[in-house]
């Protein structure tokens, strides 16, 4: 971040000497590589230790069982790259399920109307948070904390009990299996994840919006002076996160057809953990959508490993292991940053 720390003379000689061989090895991909490697290692450990672990089914289940994490984490990645944070994801997802449950089951409105509507509601909450962050300079932590209270509160006010979705549409979607190879299958949710991830990658790397997101995370003041649409982008980033949270709520209902005001309690922390393990810097400015995908996969693999252990391991270890992973990855980030600065120096 601090450009001034880089001694000048040495850089000029290093810099003007044309393309140095070091450029082949781009250090910004290192964290991403570490994340992917970690996933492969963990999956490998599982495969060696447990019979039946190494299979497409187990791999696909990682997606099938955590669709909401994937989708919310993608939205969160955008927010974190701008240097912000979104604590409202879990409760917005819960609110989505409650609104859907009420409208579909109690008022008998068709899901074809309700689902677009709830996605709009989620986006609107994100949009309002974005307005507060950008126009009124309220710290993202506080603004999204307010959003979290608001969404959860409304969900609880709608109904304190869960609503079972008996509508045939949700039953059909949640039971629909798309066969892949052998007896492995994927669900509609997995297709949604794929679409969201691809859209996010294109958005992040091949559009002006995406690049502005990175620029804001790098140096917001510069981004303004470079004439980039900072305000619009920031508001849009929170809107996207709101949309993704609502979509995560929808996938929850596709996974388990019910609306529950207590869905996704504490989910925001899992999502943030996945993003960090995926190699995105919480300071903003760097990170990859693909990294986030692997971040969620790693969290899923840990849970699966503990499940395979059966009763012999206390499930509370999952949290401790997750925390340890976050720690390791943050220390790696710091280490790489220092290395990077040294490379820049010499």
């Amino acid at each position: 971040m601090n450009i001034k720390n880089i001694p000048i003379l040495s850089c000029i000689t290093g810099g003007k000497g044309g393309n140095s061989s070091g450029s082949m090895f781009n250090f910004k991909y290192l964290l991403l590589a570490a994340t992917i490697a970690l996933f492969i290692i963990m999956f490998g450990i599982g495969s060696v230790s447990f019979r039946g672990f190494f299979s497409l089914k187990v791999f696909f289940d990682l997606f099938i069982d955590n669709p909401f994490l994937f989708i919310a984490a993608i939205g969160m990645t955008f927010v974190i790259i701008t240097g912000g944070i979104d604590l409202s994801v879990g409760s917005v997802a819960a609110l989505t399920t409650m609104i859907t449950g009420t409208l579909v089951e109690i008022h008998g409105i068709s899901p074809a109307v309700v689902l677009p509507f709830v996605l709009l509601v989620g986006s609107l909450i994100g949009f309002l948070i974005g307005i507060m962050v950008h126009f009124f300079k309220i710290q993202p932590f506080i603004a999204t904390l307010g959003g979290m209270f608001l969404a959860r509160g409304i969900a609880l006010m709608i109904n304190t009990d869960s609503i079972t979705l008996n509508n045939s549409f949700f039953k059909a979607v949640s039971n629909y299996h798309i066969p892949v190879i052998g007896n492995a299958f994927i669900t509609i949710n997995v297709v949604i994840i794929l679409i969201v991830v691809i859209a996010a990658i294109i958005l992040a790397h091949y559009t002006n919006f995406g690049r502005t997101v990175y620029a804001i995370g790098g140096n917001e003041q510069s981004a303004i002076l470079m004439g980039l649409p900072v305000g619009r982008t920031k508001i849009l980033v929170y809107t996207i996160s709101g949309f993704c949270s609502a979509l995560a709520g929808v996938t929850m209902m596709f996974y388990m057809p019910s609306g529950n005001p207590l869905h996704g309690v504490g989910m925001e922390m899992d999502v943030i953990a996945a993003v960090v393990i995926g190699g995105t810097m919480l300071t903003g400015g760097s990170g990859y959508m693909l990294g986030t995908v692997f971040g969620v996969l790693i969290l899923g693999t840990i849970a699966t490993l503990i499940n395979f252990q059966g009763g012999s391991v206390n499930p509370w270890w999952i949290r401790i292991i997750n925390a340890a992973l976050i720690l390791v990855f943050c220390l790696l980030q710091i280490l790489f940053e220092k290395k990077g600065r040294k490379i820049a120096k010499s």
Binding site: M269, L282, I318, R319, I326, L331
Partner: peptide, 27 residues
């Protein structure tokens, strides 16, 4: 000492903490 961001450093304990509490009380 390690230069972690406050929100991350305390997030780690936040995530692990309840697990530790559960281990102490054996769930």
């Amino acid at each position: 000492r390690m230069g972690l961001q406050p929100i991350i450093a305390t997030l780690i304990l936040m995530v692990a903490g309840r697990g530790i509490a559960q281990l102490i009380t054996s769930g």
